[in-house]
């Protein structure tokens, strides 16, 4: 049986007559990394703010480890660590003193734990410097450190990769995975599709405050809409003709020295290849690309069409 650490039930936020978050419901399992994906202004941050009690809930409920945030806020928040938007810290104090501020008021944070967290976010070299001297990435890392101090089992990170360099993003991803494997539920929001795809187990796509769908980011071998790219040496046009003639119902497009074919199942790839080879076409490469999250996201949010060129394939 899966345990749900965070549950949203019909969560709604109205400011005046405007509905910012509309009847949002989802549950986050123990030990998974759950993404909130949506364009700017979709209501991701508003949702997070309601979860952590920064803004009032118009309607609906939030349960953290079974405790209703509206009912017993103090109990609900004990096991939560969060960064809401940018981590804003006390500039006039050192990183260490900032951490001490939070360590003091959270239950069970030892000195060893503080040192452990500092080491984890790789800030040992600057921890006694004042935060005003920190770069954005360093602040972000200190923000992550304060969110982790008390070993929360629900970790909420709003745009956590903001300001991190590639190495920092890579480290964060690995660390979040480690936390998730140890049973922590991590909720990450972002509008960066590729990032979410690499980081999350499931992604909820949100638009205009509504949940559009929840996607499992899994190995999508059996995904129906698979595109196959045949790399052709020689006349691509001729090759296209070969396939089109033999399979009139097939959707074949040319793209540079590639033929892109939409296939219904994986077995037909071998068949198509055979046809090309037998027709004397030099096939130098075959690549399978499932529809990426980005494509689906853009389709869903109706902002653009096929952005295959920039998409990051899922199963590579």
């Amino acid at each position: 049986m899966t345990t749900h650490t965070l549950e949203l039930k019909n969560l709604t936020k109205k400011i005046k007559s405007k509905t910012i978050v509309d009847d949002l419901s989802f549950s986050v399992r123990e030990g998974e990394i759950f993404g909130l994906l949506g364009p700017n202004g979709a209501g991701k941050t508003t949702t997070i703010r309601m979860i952590v009690g920064l803004i009032s809930i118009t309607d609906g409920d939030v349960f953290i480890n079974g405790t209703n945030v509206r009912g017993n806020y103090e109990k609900a928040m004990e096991q939560v660590g969060a960064i809401v938007e940018n981590p804003q810290l006390y500039d006039f104090m050192s990183g260490y003193k900032n951490l001490m501020q939070y360590a003091r008021i959270m239950p069970g944070v030892t000195k060893e734990r503080i040192d452990e967290v500092i080491k984890l976010v790789d800030l040992e070299y600057a921890i006694h410097d004042k935060v005003k001297t920190y770069s954005l990435g360093m602040r972000q890392r200190l923000g992550v450190a304060q969110a982790l101090l008390h070993k929360p089992n629900v970790l909420i990170l709003d745009e956590p990769t903001n300001g991190l360099d590639p190495q920092g993003i890579y480290d964060l991803r690995n660390y979040l995975r480690l936390l998730a494997n140890n049973g922590t539920s991590v909720i990450v929001s972002s509008h960066m599709l590729a990032e979410m795809q690499m980081m999350c187990d499931r992604v909820a796509i949100i638009q205009h405050g509504k949940l559009v769908r929840i996607d499992e980011i899994t190995n999508q071998e059996d995904e129906a809409d698979v595109k196959v790219h045949f790399q052709i040496e020689g006349d691509v046009h001729e090759a296209k003709k070969v396939l089109s003639d033999m399979n009139p119902e097939l959707d074949v497009t040319e793209s540079g020295n590639e033929l892109i074919v939409q296939v219904a199942d994986l077995k037909s790839i071998a068949g198509l290849n055979k046809q090309l080879v037998l027709a004397g076409v030099l096939v130098v490469g075959i690549q399978r690309k499932t529809k990426t999250l980005e494509e689906r996201f853009l389709e869903m949010t109706k902002k653009g069409g096929d952005l295959n060129e920039v998409a990051v394939p899922v199963n590579e």
Binding site: L54, Y73, M77, N86, Q88
Partner: peptide, 14 residues
Amino acid sequence: SKGTIKMLLIRPYS
């Protein structure tokens, strides 16, 4: 104004 209030209010305290 500095936004640090967020970090403070999300603690388990009313």
